[in-house]
Amino acid sequence: MGLAISFWLLAAAAVGSALAVVLLRNVFRAALLLISCFFAIAGLFVTLGADFLAMVQVLVYVGAIAVLLLLAIMLTREAATGSPFSRWRIGGAIASVALLAAMIAVFRATPWKVADQSVVLKPTTAELGARLLTPESGFVLPFEIASVLLLAAVLGAIVLVKEK
């Protein structure tokens, strides 16, 4: 019961702030609401018993990505008066609707497994680590490839800045 209430509250918060992100003309406020959306999603993870994921959500999305987003906005001129991309409105709407349709189709087509008992809060960190890095699960290679990719991105960023 309590879980259901918090789920619906968090979901409403997430959807509400996500809508506000799109609709607000003040970019800085939109970014702040994006942060609140991230928080709501972190909360949803908690209700699902994914404590590690929730913390990583806050750490990565709020602590790093949103902060960099805010930095970019602060370096922008006239950020308070509105987004300069409004002439793409119709194209944007079409693209979003298409994306939404695709996602709904995928959701409906996926055979979701329903948990047969109520969620038990138990530590997931060790489990996650084992799944990622033990040879049996086979995620070692993708994991390493992802890190190489990130390294390449970092190097690329450095090269771009150095050009100046």
């Binding site: 370096l75 001129r77 771009l160 800045v161 050009e163 100046k164």
Partner: peptide
């Protein structure tokens, strides 16, 4: 690509 910033 040069990074340009607004002088304050």
């Amino acid at each position: 690509m040069a990074l340009r910033t607004e002088p304050i």
